[in-house]
Amino acid sequence: MVKVKFFAALRERLQCAELDIDSQPSDSVAEIRHRLLQQHPSWRRELLDNDVLCAKNFTFVDLQAAVNPGDELAFFPPVTGG
C-alpha cells in the first residue's frame, strides 16, 4: 500500500486530498500513476499534465523512481511560495 496526496489546484480539480493505493515491490512512480488512472479515468488530463511535480517521502522524484509499500507519494502543481 502507498499513500498518495494531492495539493493545491490539483487537489481541487481531482476533488481528492489523499488516498491509499495497492503497490508492488518493484513499482515506479509511473506505474502508480497508471494504476491511479485505471481507478479514476477522469483524472487523466490533470494527472498527465507535464507541469505536475511528484515527491516521494518528501523528496522530489521523477517518474522512473522506485516506489515501495509504505512510501508516501505526492503530486502537485509547480510551487508558488515566497
Partner: peptide, 23 residues
C-alpha cells in the same frame, strides 16, 4: 524557496479565487 519549497498561493479577488501560476 520560490521554486523548490512546496507552498501554493491562492488569490481571493472580487472576481473569485485563483491559484497563482508559477513564473
Amino acid at each position: 524557496l520560490k521554486t523548490q519549497a512546496p507552498f501554493w498561493k491562492q488569490e481571493h479577488t472580487t472576481d473569485g479565487s485563483y491559484w497563482v501560476a508559477a513564473k
